[in-house]
């Protein structure tokens, strides 16, 4: 039974200039004790997906459709239906789902001590007096490997190093022992050694608490190391979803394949230009019709050549299960004779 199920989530930003479909039909599941990696280029909707789950999407963004089902007491509650500033969602935020994100420098208020902010998080979800909450905060700091926790509590975030700050951030996210930790690029701003330590810490904490982790990153290395399952996103859509081994060793979607080709490897010949993905991410107001990746796809099928008349620049592909637990959204894997998808004019 999945801990959290996201079903066909769509989060749009509606402005005068046009509508940005930041998340456009994302579907995936998260399981206790497992890590789901979400990977994609900047602007593919990874972070907005995370924020949609917690219902903290900034204006003018808003969830237009889809379900976010959180398992609770044997049943499910749909987070997408909750009042975004209501009591119920606030119980979920920090209480059941913790968030760690990419900028440890600015994720803490510069004029409040780190301890003040962590203790606040504890007291929001646990009925503890100030002294006990402080003791709990010290315990949390020790758990995430901060030395001299008593002293650190009274320091300001800008007095801590990047690694310590991220550890403090994780401690704050874990204040109420959430069942799910969303880590949005948790190591991007850190140097390589600290990165490795933080990832190690997350793995360690997961072993101890059996929580689920949703790890958002653009770093395929981190994914390879941490994730059990991987979701590859492109322009707000899930293009491929599968176990980490399948994604790395038998990628199906041309986009995933291209991503993996653009990684420098130790056995590659030196001083040779790496293959790149041609073109760039289209402007959000000018999404291509059909498969959003088709203008950059090497294997694009034009209408005349395509079987059943299904072509990439006209028909939007749906997620097709290629094997157990591995699905891909690409017309290349269409079974012959399957229903022709509706031609969707995405660009408006």
């Amino acid at each position: 039974m999945a801990l959290l199920s996201v079903r066909d989530l769509r989060t749009y930003f509606v402005a005068d200039e046009g509508t940005t479909r930041a998340v456009d039909g994302a579907t995936f599941d998260l399981y206790a004790g497992k890590t789901l990696g979400i990977v994609g280029e900047t602007g593919c909707g990874k972070s907005v997906t995370a924020r949609s789950i917690l219902r903290i999407v900034e204006r003018p963004g808003r969830i237009v459709s889809g379900e976010i089902l959180l398992q609770r007491d044997g049943g499910y509650i749909d987070l997408a239906k909750l009042d975004p500033d209501g009591r119920e969602i606030r119980r979920v935020r920090g209480g059941e789902i913790g968030l760690v994100f990419q900028e440890p420098m600015t994720s803490f208020s510069p004029v409040h001590t780190v301890g003040d902010q962590v203790i606040e998080a504890i007291q929001l979800h646990r009925r503890l007096d100030k002294a006990r909450a402080r003791a709990r905060a010290i315990e949390l700091f020790r758990m995430v490997g901060i030395s001299r926790p008593e002293g650190r509590l009274d320091e300001y975030s800008w007095q801590l190093s990047g690694g310590l700050r991220q550890r403090a951030m994780i401690a704050m996210a874990l204040a109420a022992e959430p069942r799910l930790l969303i880590a949005d690029e948790p190591t991007t701003a850190l140097d390589v050694t600290t990165q490795a330590q933080i990832l190690e810490l997350l793995r360690d904490l997961q072993r101890k608490t059996h929580m689920a982790i949703m790890l958002i990153t653009h770093d395929l290395g981190v994914i390879a190391e941490m994730a059990d399952d991987v979701v590859v996103m492109y322009l707000g859509r899930v293009v491929e979803h599968g176990p980490v081994d399948q994604i790395f060793h038998a990628p199906k979607h041309p986009y995933t394949q291209a991503l993996l080709r653009s990684i420098p490897g130790i056995q590659h010949e030196a001083r040779v230009k790496l293959p790149t993905i041609s073109g760039s991410i289209p402007h959000p107001f000018a999404r291509p019709a059909g498969c959003p990746f088709h203008p950059r796809c090497a294997l694009v099928m034009a209408c005349a050549a395509a079987p059943d008349g299904v072509c990439c620049d006209h028909h939007e592909p749906e997620l097709i299960t290629v094997e157990e637990g591995h699905s891909v959204s690409c017309h290349l894997y269409r079974k012959k004779g399957a229903a022709v998808p509706l031609a969707l004019e995405s660009a408006r």
Binding site: G221, E225, L259, S280, R296
Partner: peptide, 22 residues
């Protein structure tokens, strides 16, 4: 592994296939 970062280099779009545009 940790240093593998996806950085698509921006190059002009290929001449073909011409994208049908609104």
């Amino acid at each position: 592994a940790a240093n593998i970062v996806v950085t698509p280099v921006e190059t002009p779009p290929p001449a073909a296939p011409p994208a049908p545009t609104a």
